[in-house]
Design a protein around this nucleic acid. Sequence first.
DNA 1: CGGCGGCTTGAGGTTGGTCAAGGCATGTGG
DNA 2: CCACATGCCTTGACCAACCTCAAGCCGCCG
Lengths: 262, 262
Amino acid sequence: MGASSRRRLIAVEKPGASSIRAHPLVTRLDHSVALDEEDLTALARLLERGTVVRKAEDIIVEGYKDRALHIVERGFAIRYKLLHSGKRQIVNVVMPGDIIGFPACFYEHAVFSVTALGDMSLHYVPLDAFADLCLARARVATAMVWFAAREAAIYAEHIVDAGRREPRERLAHFLLEMLTRLQAIGDASEDTFFMPLSQEGIGDVVGLSGPHVNRMLAELKAERLIAMNGHEVTIRDRAALQALGEFRSAYLARMPLRQPGS
Amino acid sequence: MGASSRRRLIAVEKPGASSIRAHPLVTRLDHSVALDEEDLTALARLLERGTVVRKAEDIIVEGYKDRALHIVERGFAIRYKLLHSGKRQIVNVVMPGDIIGFPACFYEHAVFSVTALGDMSLHYVPLDAFADLCLARARVATAMVWFAAREAAIYAEHIVDAGRREPRERLAHFLLEMLTRLQAIGDASEDTFFMPLSQEGIGDVVGLSGPHVNRMLAELKAERLIAMNGHEVTIRDRAALQALGEFRSAYLARMPLRQPGS
DNA sequence: CGGCGGCTTGAGGTTGGTCAAGGCATGTGG
DNA sequence: CCACATGCCTTGACCAACCTCAAGCCGCCG
């Protein structure tokens, strides 16, 4: 439960228009809608203000007013909601190339909280500046629509997970989603990735208690479907896990504006 | 479980640029980003092709290729996924002003199914035409980003529902969400709305079995929090229901591009 | 009038939550 | 360098919640 501490704003190097294409978010946008030089220059200007947050710092607090986006360059965070009962539901694991503040800060008061799981480097973007960019650069705005569609698809899949899948199926699906998303940004090997959450945290993602996550993960290990070593998760039998969790990676795939043949 | 039947395409009146502002989707977009005459003309052209679907018809079938949006003018539908176990998870209840095909048809193959709950009238929009519009009209594209942010927020709230809330809380939250969304499009009175789903359908939304939905609804009725008469649901004690479901309507509120004061 | 879909209610069994205790690794301060 | 604290994993016992199955009922539509 993230300690409420103050955020640090630290100026870092200004990425030039040349290097901006390497930014994980820009890469994603560019894959949906081919961006031109002016788009890239405008994005580079948007991403001028680098910031750093430390482990367990709150980046967005539900109910507070903070109309700014934080674009993740490095590190992990969770987007979540705390209920009166004390339960926590993690809505998404935020990783490089994701946008913290989508959709929370499009509202007058944030509708979700976001806390850093480890040290992170971000780019701070006032929502107004983002809106101006969208209005000025239709290609960027359109790429953001596609970005948002993928975000919605991930959320929808998460609803299925929490609502109707069996505990082992939920875990299988969640682990494969993490692997696939991390591979897409070059942060995972063929079958192994870094799991930034504790078992209790995983439970807060998929809607199970900590002890039950432990039991179900133990079963998956015993059946040689996965292996774990600290925060390292290895998928040992991808086919079986996919069948178990009914995982189809399509919803995480690249989404070009048009189909290859059209 | 929607019967798989063929869709009918029926040409209806072409809305002129004058009446287009009355379209429920255009109203919503215009509230986020003020649209000009050219935007409206372009939208009117996009919404030329009216179609009608009948109760229980499939509009989108998971796994099929159908790169088109269907913009809802009238009627209800469900966006859902069927699992191998036979269970169904409804991801969203689609209502007038919503876009069927977001996000399903942004992918090569649809990632969710959509079935009409009753007769509907829609506007058929090829995805390519939609993409062209976004690229040509930055204000429309930007409004769509805001539209998508609200969609994502609704999904996120649904994850919390299915993952961590108690059964009665889930129902309270779901009923208030339906009331509020319907009020926003002028389809509900102060405290009463039309529930297009059966109790089993409600169970498939919130992740409970049909019988358990029945029992929990009976409790809410006994406690005078709600009343039901056929498909009519009346919220009798909104304050108590809001407290029970921890419902804050903020995530459904209007999202203007800029804050009033900025 | 007959059939079907949906609501209602009941009985029984399993799942998974809660609580609790112990172990292990890591990191910190004396 | 050791002692201790902390966080996380692991395991067990117990129990309530919720699912499943089943039967009866009502109202609507053909």
